[in-house]
């Protein structure tokens, strides 16, 4: 029917909808919770959310595409958030990005072919003293150099292959 529609198990959303009113959750919160479940926001999920929250589908997609947190495409198992804040910029974040892109052969916003890594540059992770910084899933890595960054990525890959 359409791109990224998927055949998501929409019953997973029931709990969110059930508690929506009680928690005073707005559309953003609902989308955040849905993304936690699916890892991204498939189109059928967005539709279901529109249906159940009473917001028009146009509004739901409008919100989902406004905020950088929301992803409409699947991401890799490891999501690299590379900080490009001011301090990181001054301390060489561009070089780190280059190293990641060369190592993984992807660009900002892309996912590696094997689905292991996705790269997303972000405005600021608020760890400026450790700049340059990146976050892979929940873990933060600071004081990066291109060589160390590549080593971290290879280490993850080794772990995955083992």
């Amino acid at each position: 029917m359409c791109e990224n529609c998927g055949n998501s198990d929409l019953s997973l959303l029931n709990d969110i909808f059930a508690k929506m009113a009680e928690n005073g959750d707005n559309l953003i919160t609902v989308l955040q919770k849905a993304q936690e479940i699916y890892g991204y926001l498939p189109t059928d999920v967005l539709y279901e959310i529109a249906e159940k929250t009473g917001a028009s589908p146009a509004k739901v997609i409008g919100v989902a595409t406004f905020y950088t947190q929301f992803r409409l495409k699947k991401v890799g198992k490891y999501l690299i958030l590379l900080c490009k804040g001011t301090a990181c910029h001054v301390n060489g974040a561009d070089g780190i990005e280059k190293a990641i892109c060369e190592e993984l052969k992807i660009k900002d916003g892309d996912t590696t072919e094997d689905g292991l890594f996705s790269l997303k540059t972000v405005a600021c992770l608020g760890c400026c003293s450790l700049s340059p910084v990146m976050m892979i899933n929940e873990e933060t890595y600071g004081s990066l150099t291109p060589a160390r960054t590549v080593e971290i990525l290879r280490e993850i890959r080794r772990r995955e292959e083992a």
Partner: peptide
Amino acid sequence: KGILGLVGRGFDTVIRPEFRNT
């Protein structure tokens, strides 16, 4: 009707009818 919406942000914002194709 609310079938038109802003999609995206900043310079890349566009207006589209809602994303359902049918």
